[in-house]
């Protein structure tokens, strides 16, 4: 009666994530064969560093999408965070770690507002988060309109400097934040009641209510989490670039959603794995690395390719979902 073996079951629910992982390895292998020099530790570390902030936000977005919602505001939150930190440093000499804490506070308030508007006023998620997206983008520009680079900030310098030497690259401390959030995300999704409630809300909200689960509280918390992680992502982004620029990260929300979907999370909600998002982020980073290697493969091709990839995944998901429904009926 040993039904709790930890072997991955080849059930229908696991197909998306296995597809994701295989695609990642295939792509990496293909790229390594086609482009000498691609398969280097430096390259791999670089993909990590460039996409660390995306990964942090994507963990939060994974929970939102599993619950059946969406958060369009994350890109703007990053932009706002980065310019805020930069401006505070430049104009008031505020040490970055203080402004980072302030930003986290702002993120908390934003997440609470979004969550409450969606849950208690029953406004559509796309609308509330769309408005938040423009609000934060606008506020970012209000703070400052141009780029500000941050120099001589001890905290940022420390975060960039410290790290583990991996080959020719430096796995800086801020990348470890991503790893930490990733692990926390996996643990929360699998081992906390809150995490399981997220799956319940996304799977069948009315059932969840009937079963007595704290649906409203869960929904608000999800958006709080998303905004906080978006802010954290913004912080990591700022460290990575050591500058702030309000025009940045337009379209980031799509990057994040794309990573989550490619990672195997169902857009309709109720299923998905945080570890899948991890691979989704890497695949995304891979695709955008390719332009450097194929001169004809410009950035915009990458954009179209990612769009197609996301669409393909959604189609696979829809197809798999229909098959499951039909199997149950028979």
């Amino acid at each position: 009666m040993n039904s709790f073996k930890k072997l991955p079951k080849l059930s229908v629910n696991n197909i998306p994530i296995l597809t994701t992982i295989s695609i990642f390895f295939l792509m990496y292998a293909a790229a390594s064969i086609m482009f000498p020099g691609f398969f280097s530790l430096y390259n791999f570390v670089n993909i990590f560093k460039t996409n660390a902030f995306v990964g942090i936000i994507a963990v939060g977005m994974t929970f939102v999408i599993i619950s059946g919602g969406i958060d369009l505001s994350v890109g703007s939150v990053v932009a706002f965070t980065s310019i805020f930190i930069a401006k505070m440093h430049q104009s008031y000499g505020m040490p970055s770690w203080i402004s980072m804490l302030i930003c986290l506070g702002i993120g908390l308030v934003l997440g609470l507002s979004i969550g409450c508007l969606i849950t208690y006023f029953e406004l559509p998620e796309f609308l509330v988060t769309l408005v938040a997206m423009f609000l934060m983008r606008g506020l970012a520009y209000v703070v400052h309109q141009g780029t500000i680079s941050i120099q001589d900030d001890p905290f940022i310098a420390f975060m960039k400097r410290t790290g583990i030497r991996v080959g020719a690259g430096n796995l800086s401390l801020y990348v470890w934040v991503f790893i930490l959030i990733l692990i926390l995300g996996i643990l929360v999704s699998k081992y906390t009641r809150f995490g399981r409630n997220v799956y319940a809300v996304g799977g069948n909200e009315s059932s969840a209510v009937l079963m007595g689960l704290p649906v409203k509280r869960t929904k608000v918390l999800i958006y709080v989490m998303s905004s906080l992680l978006a802010t954290l992502g913004g912080i990591v982004f700022t460290i990575h670039l050591a500058s702030g620029k309000p025009h940045n990260t337009i379209g980031l929300e799509l990057h994040v959603i794309a990573s989550v979907v490619i990672g195997g999370t169902l857009l309709t909600g109720g299923a998905g794995r945080v570890i899948g998002t991890f691979f989704g982020v890497l695949i995304y980073g891979l695709v955008f690395k390719l332009p450097a290697y194929i001169s004809a493969f410009r950035e915009w091709w990458a954009q179209i390719l990612v769009g197609l990839l996301v669409l393909t995944f959604i189609l696979i998901q829809t197809f798999v979902a229909e098959k499951t429904a039909r199997a149950v009926e028979s």
């Binding site: 508007l117 208690y120 006023f121 029953e122 408005v131 606008g138 520009y141 209000v142 309109q145 309000p246």
Partner: peptide, 24 residues
């Protein structure tokens, strides 16, 4: 600055949406 308009529009939109919401 042009960007103020983004903030205004966002605020107006959410206020209108709230007013229109039945829950309110």
């Amino acid at each position: 600055p042009y960007e103020y308009s983004l903030v205004f529009k966002a605020v107006v939109l959410i206020v209108v949406a709230l007013i229109q919401s039945e829950k309110l």
